[in-house]
Amino acid sequence: MAQQKRKRGPLQFLQFGVIGFANAGIDIGTLNLLLLLFHTDNRMLLLLYNSIAYTLAVVNSYFWNANITFKRSAKGSNRQRFLFIAQGLISLGVSNLVFLGVNDLLELTAFPNWLRYNTAKGLAMLLSFLASFFMVKYFVFRDFGKKHIKNND
Protein backbone atom coordinates (compact mmCIF):
# COMPACT_ATOMS: atom_id res chain seq x y z
CA MET A 1 0.00 0.00 0.00
CA ALA A 2 2.86 2.41 0.76
CA GLN A 3 4.31 1.78 -2.71
CA GLN A 4 0.89 2.39 -4.29
CA LYS A 5 0.55 5.62 -2.34
CA ARG A 6 3.99 6.81 -3.52
CA LYS A 7 3.10 6.08 -7.15
CA ARG A 8 -0.23 7.84 -6.82
CA GLY A 9 1.37 11.12 -5.63
CA PRO A 10 3.31 11.86 -8.84
CA LEU A 11 0.42 10.55 -10.97
CA GLN A 12 -2.02 12.79 -9.09
CA PHE A 13 0.27 15.77 -9.60
CA LEU A 14 0.49 14.95 -13.33
CA GLN A 15 -3.30 14.59 -13.63
CA PHE A 16 -3.82 17.77 -11.62
CA GLY A 17 -1.30 19.48 -13.91
CA VAL A 18 -3.07 18.38 -17.12
CA ILE A 19 -6.41 19.57 -15.73
CA GLY A 20 -4.65 22.69 -14.50
CA PHE A 21 -3.37 23.34 -18.02
CA ALA A 22 -6.96 23.25 -19.32
CA ASN A 23 -8.02 25.49 -16.44
CA ALA A 24 -5.20 27.88 -17.34
CA GLY A 25 -6.67 28.16 -20.82
CA ILE A 26 -10.06 28.99 -19.34
CA ASP A 27 -8.51 31.39 -16.83
CA ILE A 28 -6.23 33.37 -19.13
CA GLY A 29 -8.65 33.11 -22.05
CA THR A 30 -11.47 34.61 -20.00
CA LEU A 31 -9.24 37.38 -18.66
CA ASN A 32 -8.06 38.27 -22.17
CA LEU A 33 -11.59 38.17 -23.56
CA LEU A 34 -12.80 40.52 -20.84
CA LEU A 35 -9.85 42.85 -21.45
CA LEU A 36 -10.47 42.75 -25.18
CA LEU A 37 -14.16 43.54 -24.80
CA PHE A 38 -13.89 45.95 -21.85
CA HIS A 39 -10.31 47.22 -21.71
CA THR A 40 -9.33 48.91 -18.47
CA ASP A 41 -6.39 49.87 -16.30
CA ASN A 42 -8.66 50.29 -13.27
CA ARG A 43 -7.40 48.07 -10.44
CA MET A 44 -10.89 47.21 -9.21
CA LEU A 45 -12.04 46.12 -12.66
CA LEU A 46 -8.82 44.15 -13.16
CA LEU A 47 -9.51 42.45 -9.82
CA LEU A 48 -13.07 41.69 -10.93
CA TYR A 49 -11.91 40.32 -14.31
CA ASN A 50 -9.26 38.16 -12.64
CA SER A 51 -11.81 36.88 -10.12
CA ILE A 52 -14.33 35.97 -12.83
CA ALA A 53 -11.67 34.18 -14.88
CA TYR A 54 -10.31 32.32 -11.84
CA THR A 55 -13.79 31.30 -10.67
CA LEU A 56 -14.66 29.75 -14.03
CA ALA A 57 -11.41 27.79 -13.95
CA VAL A 58 -12.05 26.62 -10.37
CA VAL A 59 -15.53 25.31 -11.22
CA ASN A 60 -13.99 23.36 -14.11
CA SER A 61 -11.22 22.18 -11.78
CA TYR A 62 -13.65 20.82 -9.20
CA PHE A 63 -15.56 18.80 -11.77
CA TRP A 64 -12.51 17.18 -13.38
CA ASN A 65 -10.38 16.70 -10.26
CA ALA A 66 -13.27 15.18 -8.30
CA ASN A 67 -13.96 12.76 -11.16
CA ILE A 68 -10.40 11.93 -12.23
CA THR A 69 -7.48 13.03 -10.05
CA PHE A 70 -9.02 12.45 -6.61
CA LYS A 71 -11.87 10.10 -7.54
CA ARG A 72 -10.88 7.56 -4.88
CA SER A 73 -11.33 10.03 -2.07
CA ALA A 74 -13.86 12.45 -3.61
CA LYS A 75 -17.18 11.68 -1.96
CA GLY A 76 -19.13 14.74 -3.07
CA SER A 77 -19.95 15.40 0.57
CA ASN A 78 -20.94 18.80 1.92
CA ARG A 79 -17.67 18.81 3.89
CA GLN A 80 -15.62 18.34 0.72
CA ARG A 81 -17.62 20.97 -1.15
CA PHE A 82 -17.15 23.44 1.71
CA LEU A 83 -13.41 22.73 1.90
CA PHE A 84 -13.10 23.02 -1.88
CA ILE A 85 -14.83 26.41 -1.81
CA ALA A 86 -12.59 27.50 1.09
CA GLN A 87 -9.41 26.46 -0.74
CA GLY A 88 -10.75 28.13 -3.88
CA LEU A 89 -11.20 31.39 -2.01
CA ILE A 90 -7.69 31.15 -0.53
CA SER A 91 -6.25 30.36 -3.97
CA LEU A 92 -8.26 33.23 -5.45
CA GLY A 93 -6.69 35.51 -2.85
CA VAL A 94 -3.23 34.28 -3.85
CA SER A 95 -4.09 34.77 -7.51
CA ASN A 96 -5.43 38.29 -7.01
CA LEU A 97 -2.52 39.40 -4.81
CA VAL A 98 0.08 38.09 -7.24
CA PHE A 99 -1.79 39.38 -10.31
CA LEU A 100 -2.17 42.90 -8.95
CA GLY A 101 1.29 42.97 -7.34
CA VAL A 102 3.17 41.80 -10.43
CA ASN A 103 1.04 44.04 -12.63
CA ASP A 104 1.95 47.03 -10.43
CA LEU A 105 5.65 46.14 -10.59
CA LEU A 106 5.60 45.69 -14.35
CA GLU A 107 3.70 48.95 -14.78
CA LEU A 108 6.99 50.65 -13.87
CA THR A 109 8.55 49.17 -17.01
CA ALA A 110 7.81 49.84 -20.66
CA PHE A 111 5.96 46.52 -21.06
CA PRO A 112 2.89 46.81 -23.28
CA ASN A 113 -0.35 46.34 -21.33
CA TRP A 114 -1.20 42.94 -22.87
CA LEU A 115 2.24 41.56 -22.00
CA ARG A 116 2.11 43.02 -18.49
CA TYR A 117 -1.35 41.54 -17.80
CA ASN A 118 -0.46 38.14 -19.21
CA THR A 119 2.87 37.94 -17.38
CA ALA A 120 1.16 38.87 -14.12
CA LYS A 121 -1.60 36.35 -14.83
CA GLY A 122 0.90 33.60 -15.62
CA LEU A 123 2.72 34.04 -12.32
CA ALA A 124 -0.59 34.28 -10.48
CA MET A 125 -1.77 31.04 -12.09
CA LEU A 126 1.46 29.22 -11.21
CA LEU A 127 1.43 30.20 -7.54
CA SER A 128 -2.30 29.66 -7.09
CA PHE A 129 -2.00 26.28 -8.87
CA LEU A 130 0.64 25.10 -6.40
CA ALA A 131 -1.33 26.37 -3.40
CA SER A 132 -4.48 24.76 -4.75
CA PHE A 133 -2.88 21.36 -5.41
CA PHE A 134 -1.58 20.97 -1.89
CA MET A 135 -4.78 22.21 -0.27
CA VAL A 136 -6.93 19.93 -2.46
CA LYS A 137 -4.70 16.90 -1.94
CA TYR A 138 -4.15 17.23 1.81
CA PHE A 139 -7.36 18.90 3.01
CA VAL A 140 -10.24 18.71 0.54
CA PHE A 141 -10.02 15.19 -0.89
CA ARG A 142 -8.04 13.65 1.93
CA ASP A 143 -9.65 10.48 3.19
CA PHE A 144 -9.39 10.98 6.95
CA GLY A 145 -10.83 7.55 7.77
CA LYS A 146 -8.55 5.61 5.44
CA LYS A 147 -5.84 5.01 8.07
CA HIS A 148 -8.20 2.84 10.11
CA ILE A 149 -9.55 0.75 7.24
CA LYS A 150 -7.55 -2.08 5.73
CA ASN A 151 -7.29 -1.57 1.98
CA ASN A 152 -7.13 -4.70 -0.19
CA ASP A 153 -6.60 -2.84 -3.51
Rank of each mutant, 00 (worst) to 15 (best):
M1D: 09
Q4L: 14
K5A: 13
R8V: 11
Q12H: 05
F13C: 00
F13N: 02
L14T: 05
G17P: 05
G17A: 15
V18Q: 01
G20Y: 01
G25I: 06
I26L: 13
I28Y: 03
G29K: 00
G29M: 01
G29A: 02
T30D: 06
L31Q: 02
N32P: 07
L33K: 03
L34P: 01
L35H: 07
L35I: 00
L35W: 02
L35C: 07
T40K: 07
D41A: 10
N42V: 05
R43N: 12
L45P: 01
L45V: 12
L46W: 00
L47Y: 11
N50W: 04
I52C: 13
A53H: 04
A53R: 01
Y54N: 08
T55Q: 09
L56I: 11
V59G: 10
N60I: 10
N60C: 13
S61E: 05
F63Y: 11
F63M: 08
W64G: 04
W64I: 06
N67G: 15
I68E: 06
I68L: 15
T69Y: 06
T69E: 07
F70P: 02
F70R: 02
K71I: 07
K71C: 03
R72Y: 05
S73C: 11
S73K: 10
G76K: 09
S77M: 10
Q80P: 07
R81T: 11
R81F: 15
F82Y: 11
F82V: 13
L83Y: 12
L83G: 02
F84G: 12
Q87E: 12
Q87T: 15
Q87L: 13
G88S: 04
G88I: 01
G88W: 02
G88Y: 02
L89G: 11
I90F: 14
I90R: 08
S91E: 07
L92K: 06
L92W: 05
L92H: 06
S95D: 14
L97Q: 13
L97M: 15
V102A: 04
N103P: 00
N103Y: 14
D104I: 11
D104Y: 12
A110M: 08
A110R: 10
A110F: 10
P112L: 00
L115G: 08
Y117E: 14
Y117F: 14
N118L: 03
N118T: 03
N118K: 03
A120Q: 04
A120T: 03
A120N: 01
A120V: 03
K121T: 07
K121P: 04
G122T: 08
L123T: 07
A124Q: 05
L126S: 08
S128V: 02
F129C: 03
L130W: 06
A131Q: 13
S132D: 09
S132Y: 05
M135H: 11
K137P: 04
K137Q: 14
K137N: 15
K137T: 06
V140N: 06
F141N: 02
R142K: 13
D143K: 09
D143T: 00
D143P: 00
K147I: 12
K147M: 10
H148C: 03
I149Q: 12
K150G: 10
N152V: 12
